[in-house]
Amino acid sequence: MASIFTKIINREIPGHIVAEDDNYIAFLDISPLVHGHVLVVPKKEVDYMYDLDDETLGGLHVFAKKVARAIERVIPCRRIGVAVIGIEVPHTHIHLVPLNSMDDINFTRPKLHSSEEELRSMAEKIRECM
């Protein structure tokens, strides 16, 4: 069965996409740790990051860097934190999280609940900076 990320990639379900090319896609996390939390995903559905071929793995990180730079232009933060957990969705993904403190990337804290309009607006701002 296709992962929820593959369903976003295939436009079977909506996602707030901020960047996309032939091999990768980035979209807002709908339950973010902080505003501007983005997921970067290879379009190839592979569960575990280190099962990706070297070219896809390297390309994923280069694509994530471009997205991180755009997030930095939109969200005031000290830097963009990077997390790879990969337990909750069986599709490789990188979390890009705007950081002002270590607690901003604490996945045990309550998630934010943003309105569709807030998500749409944030995605548009990041897209404009790509």
Rank of each mutant, 00 (worst) to 15 (best):
F107G: 11
S114M: 07
L52H: 08
R109S: 04
R11F: 04
H37S: 08
P14Q: 01
E117K: 15
G15T: 01
L99F: 01
F5P: 06
D53V: 07
L112V: 12
C129Q: 15
D47H: 12
A64I: 05
F5S: 00
P98A: 05
R69S: 14
E55I: 12
T108H: 06
E12M: 02
G86C: 15
T6A: 08
T92N: 10
G15D: 05
K43H: 13
S115D: 13
R73E: 11
S114N: 12
V41H: 01
K111W: 13
N106F: 01
G59V: 04
E55K: 12
V89N: 03
R120K: 09
I8D: 03
T92D: 10
V67Q: 00
E116M: 09
A64G: 06
E128Y: 12
M1H: 12
G36R: 04
L99E: 01
Y48P: 03
I30G: 01
S115A: 10
S3W: 06
S121A: 11
I80P: 00
V34L: 05
S31T: 02
E20N: 04
P32E: 09
V89L: 12
I17P: 00
A123V: 01
M1E: 05
P14F: 10
R78P: 15
I80F: 06
G15F: 01
A83K: 01
E45Y: 03
D51K: 04
M130S: 09
V46P: 10
R120Y: 11
P14W: 00
V89G: 06
E45L: 05
